[in-house]
Amino acid sequence: NQASVVANQLIPINTALTLVMMRSEVVTPVGIPAEDIPRLVGMQVNRAVPLGTTLMPDMVKGYA
């Protein structure tokens, strides 16, 4: 099963992502693939992302 990117903490709206904010986990539904974590660093979320939430492509500005 493919691992997805999951929020390791509450990520406030418009926050630029850092490695410490994300972890990989096998979840359903599948979100952004864990191998894209390096690409996500520095990108901003367009909404608040609660701890444990799977990051979906539409949550990250410029990802989709």
Rank of each mutant, 00 (worst) to 15 (best):
N14L: 08
L55D: 00
M59I: 08
V45T: 14
T18Q: 07
L19T: 07
Y63L: 06
G62M: 09
N8G: 13
V45G: 02
M59N: 14
M22W: 02
A48F: 05
P29A: 09
T28Q: 11
T54E: 02
G31E: 03
S24V: 09
M21Q: 11
A48Q: 04
M56G: 12
V41I: 07
G31I: 03
L51H: 14
D58M: 07
K61W: 15
Q2L: 11
V26Q: 13
V30N: 11
M21T: 05
N8S: 11
P50W: 15
D36V: 09
G62V: 08
L51E: 15
G42S: 05
G31Q: 03
A64M: 14
Q9T: 06
A34C: 02
P33K: 15
M22A: 02
M21E: 04
L19F: 07
N8E: 13
P38H: 11
M59A: 11
V41Q: 15
P57A: 13
T53K: 14
A48T: 08
A3R: 10
R23E: 12
E35P: 14
P38N: 13
T15H: 05
P38Y: 15
R47Q: 15
M21I: 07
V41R: 10
D36G: 11
G42L: 06
P29K: 08
V49L: 04
P33G: 13
Y63S: 05
N14V: 09
V20M: 04
T15I: 13
I37L: 12
G42I: 01
T28Y: 08
Q44M: 15
A64F: 06
M56Y: 04
L10N: 04
E35M: 05
T28F: 05
L40S: 01
I11M: 15
P29L: 04
V30Y: 06
T53S: 07
L55I: 11
L51A: 07
P12D: 13
V20G: 13
R39T: 08
A64K: 02
V20R: 09
P29C: 02
M43V: 05
Q2H: 15
T54F: 04
V5L: 05
M56N: 08
L10T: 09
L17W: 00
G31P: 00
L51G: 07
V49E: 01
L51M: 12
A48M: 05
I37D: 00
P57I: 14
V27R: 09
E25R: 08
D58G: 07
